[in-house]
Amino acid sequence: MAGAPAREEGGGVTVTAVIEIRELHKYFGDLEVLKGIDFHVNEGEVVCVIGPSGSGKSTLLRCVNRLEEPTSGTILIEGEDITDLDADVDALRTKIGMVFQQFNLFPHLDVMGNLTIAQTKVLKRSKEEAARIAHDVLERVGLLDKIDEYPIRLSGGQQQRVAIARALAMNPDMMMFDEPTSALDPELVGEVLDVMRKLAKEGMTMMVVTHEMGFAMEVADRVVFMDDGVVVEEGKPSEVLQEPKTERARRFLRMVTAK
């Protein structure tokens, strides 16, 4: 397994769920956006979550590292309940790499600063070690030559690849992608998907909220279709994307492929 350190629990042959969600409900005020979600991601698995906008897929992903507070339900990360009020959320988040639609690079820091600040401040790595790791991850996303640039000088695709590198620099056990290519110009989507494809091949555990059906078809081990706050259908990409069982999934897929 690339990068991620082996954990004691689930180190054996048995498949273990690194993310396990049970009966998750989330309200925004009176609006129920997640209506009892059961969901899991196994170690080394790539799960793509698809569905119309407003279906709750981004909220589900953001609940996994508690950027959104779940209203009720359980979320186990590597067996640890993170909805527990006493859970050390900061420590937990270092295990979960997060990539946003809007990249969210720190504009006041250069690429090197973006890649090292959390390493040194949170993981307490030495400056030298953090810089070495920054070099490594930047090379993996193919942007070593941009190490001294400021984010504003990079294209959207390059910014997103740096954002992926920033998450990887923390040696996370899993990576979350929240519509990582939705804010990109069409010609820049490919370079970001290439990086994600490579990560998947290296065995990274990934949860990807996306509208890229081609990517889901090719890379995902499992596709989850959500609509109106519930998981409507899930299974192998070929099943969900090519022979959907429900009318709702059929209608959604017709609309995205018609584009």
Partner: peptide
């Protein structure tokens, strides 16, 4: 922007 603190919190910063 809110995304700035979300990114920082996601990296484990308090």
């Amino acid at each position: 922007p809110r995304g700035q603190s979300e990114a920082a919190r996601s990296l484990g910063m308090s």
